[in-house]
Design a protein around this nucleic acid. Sequence first.
DNA 1: GCTAAATTTGAATGAATGTTCAAGCTATTA
DNA 2: TAATAGCTTGAACATTCATTCAAATTTAGC
Lengths: 193, 193
Amino acid sequence: MTRAQFDREQVIRDATQLFWQQGFSGASMQQVVKATGLKPGSLYLAFGSKEGLYQAALESYTSQLRAAVCRVLDDAPSVGEGVCQLVLQLVEECGSGNYCSCFLIKSQLELAASGSDLLHCISGYLSQMEDLYADYLSREHSPEQARLYAASLMLHVLGLRVYGYLGRSRETTIAAAKAGLPWLPWHKVDVPD
Amino acid sequence: MTRAQFDREQVIRDATQLFWQQGFSGASMQQVVKATGLKPGSLYLAFGSKEGLYQAALESYTSQLRAAVCRVLDDAPSVGEGVCQLVLQLVEECGSGNYCSCFLIKSQLELAASGSDLLHCISGYLSQMEDLYADYLSREHSPEQARLYAASLMLHVLGLRVYGYLGRSRETTIAAAKAGLPWLPWHKVDVPD
DNA sequence: GCTAAATTTGAATGAATGTTCAAGCTATTA
DNA sequence: TAATAGCTTGAACATTCATTCAAATTTAGC
């Protein structure tokens, strides 16, 4: 008997980074082999196929994303302020050098026409993020209002994840987000106008 | 001497549809050969490379998109109402059976990490769409207001192009868009609440 | 220390990839 | 009609692709 000699989570993290950057078709298994340090045989024994590994990457990414969102919203003085912080954080990411949008969004768009089993996962994960927003927002709003605000917030998050590539200034981007989310307590957070 | 025996624009349209659905990496030249009816040699003589054909597809798509937007905005009673119509039209598309998001957005996300020459084109085309919105909006708003509204509109358009995959009802989606774009004259257009 | 089960190795597989090119064809010009 | 420039053809090219598997290695249980 032998236990696996590699750190499964670390391998998934390495694969996630590669798939996130290059996409499913864009990343070859040879690149995965190089990125993870595992040989093809080990990869296929552990994950079954390229698609299996991609699915593990999606799961890992989503759980980390969810955790990061919860951390910010839990630590903020109010849900509204927390959401403001999330949006500002997003804008900040957009300006970073190697900006890479969102793994879920990129996966959704790339695989939409492929009819892959992964698709149900992906749109499910995206929906879960909206549900998460709605749950938090319902602490400060009626259920219907919370759902509406969550959908509008989702629209902005998705939009920002693409808008980030247009190279607009942080100020411009923040102003646009504020204009579309006027019900948030922007005056309570430290936002460069 | 001989003239090309195929309709160049038709070939580009066929290729556009394929690339739009499958992506750059996802669509093989063999598929392009089948979709256009041209043999490899003719394709390479006419477009130089897969990337060259993709570029032609992007150009074609963008000019049609621009024309469609202008048509709606020019024909509407006011720019505000025209923008409402554009948004509603977008939501309608989201619900259609073979929804395929936006070719520019999909290209931007897929090729972002590739370092391809196409990238400058793509983000340029997307920026041009925002500029177009700003131009029209400046007929009814101050230049600064128009730029702000155009950016917010852009955020919504990009967001909706991804949100469409989540399978939300038309009503939910429209409500979210209305919430984020409260400065539009929604009361003047026929919108299912 | 021996056996056996689990994991690792990495070369090999066949299919698919983007691209090329020499030969054949077509239509215009002289 | 003959010559020729330009287009079409589609088999062939070298790579690269995802995946496999038999042999080597490692560890756990006895």
